[in-house]
Nucleic acid binder design. Sequence first.
DNA 1: ATCCCGAGGG
DNA 2: CCCTCTGGAT
Length: 218
Amino acid sequence: MPRENLTQKRERAAEIEQRMFEHYGEGACSLDHVDPFTLTVAVILSAQCTDAAVNKVTPELFARFGTPEAMAAASIEDIEAIIHPLGFFRSKAKNLKACAQTVLAEFGGEVPRTMVDLQKLPGVGRKTANVVMCQAFRDPQGIAVDTHVFRIAHQLGFATRNDDTPEKVEAKLMKIYPQPDWLYINHQWVHFGREFCVARRPKCQECFLADICPSSGK
DNA sequence: ATCCCGAGGG
DNA sequence: CCCTCTGGAT
């Protein structure tokens, strides 16, 4: 099969994006939150655990420490006790407190609105910063590549074996998809990754992209 | 046994 | 570049 060129990838991506909209709309964020700070907290907590598990602990967490002021003043032990069912609870608790302190000390109590400043917050890397820029500020500066997006990009043939880091996959996707689509790709693909393109055994027989996916049935 | 909306540190 | 942090679900 001849290698697909960039123009062809873009055309296929446009068709995929249209179908994603038909199935998932703009892709609702499945992490419960009420503002940029609680979204940032929820995304930090979501590393290596399911969103459902995060949503189970955030009601109590936000009730007690739902603002930068409250979180910055909280004890690490109290935060750990609440988020304990999640993975990496020690480092996450430390990061949440330091993150809140940084928001207060460096950014006047407001979650910053640029990729550079967001990534100055402890616990916030490129993926989390991308989610906050898209979901909270509607200002896409990149594409959040998590485990789902990473896997699906390879399955769809938009990334190669050589693209072995989230950064490389993100760069490929940013060339293929127009910037307005960056807002929706992460959430739509996460839903898609849970429903059809699951890691273990993709449900290609039922998948609505099977006819335009190079990995279908493999 | 493997996976889940990663980030920090060495 | 690698390693570590972590527990629950399937």
